[in-house]
Amino acid sequence: MSAPASPSGARRRALLFWAFFAIGTVVLALAPLALNNYWLRVLTTVFMYATVTQGLNVIVGLTGYHAFGNAVFFGFGAYASGVAMTLGAPFPVALVAAVAFSALVAGIVGWPILRLRGHYFAIATVALNLAAIQLVIQVGGVTGGAEGLPLPLSDLPPGPLYRAIYLVMLAGMVVSTLLVAFILTRPFGYALRAIRDGERAAGVMGIDTTATKVAAWAISAGITGFAGGVWAYWITFIEPASAFDPAIGVKAYMMLILGGMGTVIGPVLGAFVLEFLSTLVWGGFLQAHQIVFGVLIVVICLVAPNGMLVAGRSLIQRWRSRHGAA
């Protein structure tokens, strides 16, 4: 059994981690000066998925509630920002609308369905995703319905515009990661982890489990909605099938599993590794990339079911003990 880590060692590791995080953020923020359009797009996509995965992390990783349909808030965020801009709102206001609307939906829908434990909630989120597609089509009008919704074009020329979107997506990834780190130090974060590890005990120890879960889901939805809101502006045309594409949620789930559920940096690592891999696979196996990707998922689940951080650590430990240098 491993001895409990000494507090000073833990503090040193945390300092090192945040130093890396700060350097990485600065490097990525300056990178557009050197990147071509292709890599700008790849990285913007990575940041987008890292943000969606961080949103998923809040409800799945921290709270232990599987939300298979969580990417529904990506769609709600995209549509909230799309509709707001169509109505004349500037982009920053549209982003606020995307976050607020997504969080609001989670708050309202979460109140009844988060009382359900375990699988029922997971299924209900999938149903919500399917319902959302129908809803947008039925509402029509300002959402564009089944025809889709073209967003107003930006005044910026493409170069600066794409760099701006890159930076906003990067901000989404960085801020959502900082938010998760902050939550974990607060009583709210302890409440989430307590619910994840034993909801019944959490309740009798004084945690208002329903309110806490709803708050967690609203935060999760807000983060996811932000990514959707930026995405809508980026691609300038959204339709129900692309905004509420279940594949977004599946990919985020894989990134979360790969990176490590409930960790601060796992979603970011998972997004980088999987999105780069998927870009490579996409290029190399244009025909078979779904299959290759599927096999990849299975391999991840078998080799690193607790994420690559845990897998890496236990690999190092095994290597050390074999070489006697404990």
Partner: peptide, 28 residues
């Protein structure tokens, strides 16, 4: 009103001290 569980239900990803602190944090 505080209680224990016959089938113990610790928060397994938290240290013993954190487990107990949860009680003070929310139940006190």
């Amino acid at each position: 009103i505080a209680r224990t569980f016959q089938i113990v239900q610790p928060f397994k990803a938290m240290s013993v001290r954190e487990n107990v602190a949860i009680g003070a944090m929310f139940g006190h």
